[in-house]
Design a protein around this nucleic acid. Structure first.
Length: 414
DNA sequence: TCTGGGGTCCTAGGACCC
DNA sequence: TCTGGGGTCCTAGGACCC
């Protein structure tokens, strides 16, 4: 029997906990970070049904005395890093999945620090004592089970799933706790009378695949029987990079989308260049007033990272897509994503290669000028800050729906 | 006064090739 | 002449995660 050496650690209601740490008056109170939209909320607020992603108005309806605070985003980054660093004191085998969550495999270090359970207890105590934050930990033989265990442990708890007791632990739990079961899948399963993981496990694989599709059906059957073979991966390379902007309601015209797409292209490509990455596929997403959205994409012959090229391709995709929907007069969101990402070939550090058409071609004056302009701007921003310089057209008017600091938190994973 | 922003993976159909 | 099967890539949409 393999030992249970995988830990999943998850800071509880992270942003809200940090705010309560910084301001004692918020402790024990129903509070949320955000305003227009709830970015995070305290357990006291959750008791009223308030949830992350909910509109501020809806949250206030559910919980009239809810207190809204602006986020201390720099503190989230610092404290999230510090919590992960506590885990790193016990093992280098760490897979961070977000600002407040990570897997660790302690198989190689139990001779130094004691059993996985002992290590989990120590990590929880240290994060509480040194950082002042509650953190829940699950310990199990597989990643999926460790993750489920940490969810069961919340708030501020520890759950160890001992080898041999996995199915006993898993099968009474609701299917919604499984990784990969969201609202849609949960409803489909409920329609079949399946509400627990045990019921799911005892459903024939064939009917599961028929109901949920080949891959999802297969995956859930495996997870329900605790057949999770994934290991803790310390390295991660991005497959795509994107940026989006909610617009409120704006007319579906070029004067709306052109400046927005410039701005988004600038955000995405400067992040790519900062990591010496290039991408081949450019995808745009347009959301209409009724929340339906469409995507259009274009795959280039060669990978790129120049702002103007991404912007021009995106504009053409949006122009063409909107022409297909002449009755849509209003758009509410625009997004750009660059995928097919890879490392920038070394030679591109000297010359821009593989641009889309004649005028962008390496060695031509325009291609070179555009690439040089991007490089110069990236350098200036590194020295003087992001806001110091930009293509004039990318500087958008109007209030921001979400602080830039919040976007930057979400960006870390490239 | 409808619902933020950043990602991953899967599906299904069509084009194209062998 | 008609037919078959497999593989890869691209596109558009959708579910899910933090």
């Amino acid at each position: 029997m393999t030992e249970a050496t995988i830990l999943h650690a998850d800071l509880d209601s992270f942003y809200a906990s940090v705010e309560q740490l910084l301001n004692p008056e918020l402790r024990g109170r129903a509070m949320a970070v955000g305003g227009g939209v709830v970015l995070a909320c305290s357990y006291e607020a959750k008791a009223f049904g308030v949830r992350g992603g909910m509109s501020g108005r809806k949250a206030k309806e559910l919980c009239p005395h809810l207190i809204f605070v602006h986020g201390h985003f720099d503190q989230y980054q610092r404290l999230g890093d510090a919590a992960i660093d506590v885990m790193r004191d016990y093992t280098p085998v760490i897979e961070r999945i977000s600002i407040d969550e990570a897997f660790a495999d302690v198989a190689g270090c139990t001779h130094l620090f004691g059993s996985p359970e002992t290590i989990a207890v120590t990590i929880r105590k240290r994060v509480r004592d040194e950082l002042g934050l509650p953190i829940s930990v699950g310990v199990a033989r597989t990643k999926h089970l460790a993750k489920v265990a940490s969810q069961v442990a919340k708030p501020d708890g520890l759950v160890v799933v001992r080898p041999g007791t996995e199915l006993e632990f898993l099968h009474d739990l609701p299917v919604g706790l499984m990784w990969g079961v969201g609202p849609v899948t949960e409803q489909k399963l409920r329609d079949e009378g399946i509400t627990t993981i045990g019921q799911l496990a005892n459903t024939p694989g064939k009917s599961l695949r028929g109901l949920l599709g080949e891959a999802v059906g297969e995956k859930l059957a495996d997870l329900a029987w605790d057949r999770d073979t994934r290991s803790v991966e310390t390295r991660h390379s991005a497959r795509s990079a994107g940026a989006q902007s909610a617009l409120g309601r704006k007319p579906a015209t070029e004067s709306t989308y052109k400046p927005t797409l410039r701005h988004l292209a600038d955000r995405v490509t400067s992040r790519l260049r900062a990591k010496s990455l290039v991408g081949r596929t450019i995808t745009v997403r347009i959301r209409f007033a009724d929340m339906r959205s469409i995507t259009r994409s274009s795959t280039l012959d060669a990978p790129i990272s120049a702002t103007v090229i991404v912007a021009e391709v995106a504009e053409e995709l949006v122009r063409t897509a909107l022409a297909e929907y002449p009755r849509e007069k209003t758009i509410t969101l625009l997004a750009i994503s660059v995928s097919h990402i890879g490392a920038q070939p070394q030679i591109q550090l000297e010359l821009p290669l593989g641009l889309v058409d004649e005028k962008h071609r390496p060695g031509t004056r325009q291609g070179l000028a555009r690439w040089s302009a991007d490089r110069a701007m990236d350098k200036a921003r590194t020295r003087f800050g992001r806001e110091s310089i930009g293509y004039a057209i990318t500087q958008l008017e109007g209030r921001k729906s979400v602080p830039d600091a919040f976007r930057e938190l979400a960006e870390k994973n490239l």
